[in-house]
Amino acid sequence: MEVVNLGERLVKVTLTGRLDTQGVDRLETRFIAAVVPAANNAIVDLSGVNFVASMGIRMLIAVARSLKQRQARLALFGTTAQVKDVFEAVSLHKLIPVCATETDALASITIPQA
């Protein structure tokens, strides 16, 4: 996992590997620590994630919800084929913006909410 500061309360998190039970076990604590306590708006680069299962989706939803409670937002981008299929199967885009590019992800979290 890599975290890059993009500005005030704005970070880019790059996740890599598999977001299955073992992968989530490995990185969930660090991922939460990187964004939730500081209420950082976060864009998450998934281009290095080649496999996602429900545990990974649960982690993303839980973090997005914690951020929302702190008036911050999360957006995803760079989905690979398997990840895209699974996100679509559970309609994740209804809960978290799933964007084609980093620019789109940034736009989706920086446009003021109504």
């Binding site: 649960r58 939803i61 809960l95």
Partner: peptide, 10 residues
Amino acid sequence: LDEAQIGGLG
């Protein structure tokens, strides 16, 4: 997100 149940996805 507020009403999302984090279960049953598997």
